[in-house]
Amino acid sequence: MPLLNQQIEEENDYSLTASLDNVRNLSTILKAIHFREHATCFATKNGIKVTVENAKCVQANAFIQAGIFQEFKVQEEPVTFRINLTVLLDCLSIFGSSPMPGILTALRMCYQGYGYPLMLFLEEGGVVTVCKINTQEPEETLDFDFCSTNVINKIILQSEGLREAFSELDMTSEVLQITMSPDKPYFRLSTFGNAGSSHLDYPKDSDLMESFNCTQTQVNRYKISLLKPSTKALVLSCKVSIRTDNRGFLSLQYMIRNEDGQICFVEYYCCPDEVPESES
């Protein structure tokens, strides 16, 4: 394919080049954080981190480690740019999002550096699509300063245990209240909607509970509108880690297995809706 060869010759000019045999290994992960139009990308030798934020209260990060790609090169790190995620996803799925079995779309991605567009070369069955997506000035992303040493409570659940709960959240409730405690009710999700309150408890010895490390009772509220988008990641994931720190900040880490059996992570941070009340 002359188009691709030409690109390879000029490879040294690029600050980022990556190729992937199955574009869905990238697009699926990016869909999991697609709740805002724009995303900031950071590439280092270890891989790409794509960040999406909303209302200065929630941040989603998708990590696509270098090992997912068949080839991954970064010249001078970190490579940072902002991009329209909606457009990027449309480009990545240009040959359709539900392909026929056995047919893969290959991707080659190049970025020359600050001010240049992100170039995508997609190939399926001999048809090549070239996309030139303009990049934007990278924006400062939030630092949630979520440090594992400050984590008070931590639960690892099998995602199926949370999937139904999240997809049926009472959206008339403004907040989702999460209770984590070493004592009963251990792990409780509560909503307070027009039709009344609802509480969903997970016993600590449930089969769905992979690990349970709660040291102190914490009751925190999070804006439901901010947490709802994480359902996209939840649906794709096999396990989820739920952590809260001493300030009541919430971290949701989703473990996602791609079509080739490799593991990727998507992480959501959310700040509490109000200063945590004294335990009631």
Binding site: L3, C91, I94, V128, C131, K132
Partner: peptide
């Protein structure tokens, strides 16, 4: 303004 996309069909 955001993006140029070209799909090439050959032969």
């Amino acid at each position: 303004e955001l993006v140029c996309v070209t799909t090439h069909f050959k032969d």
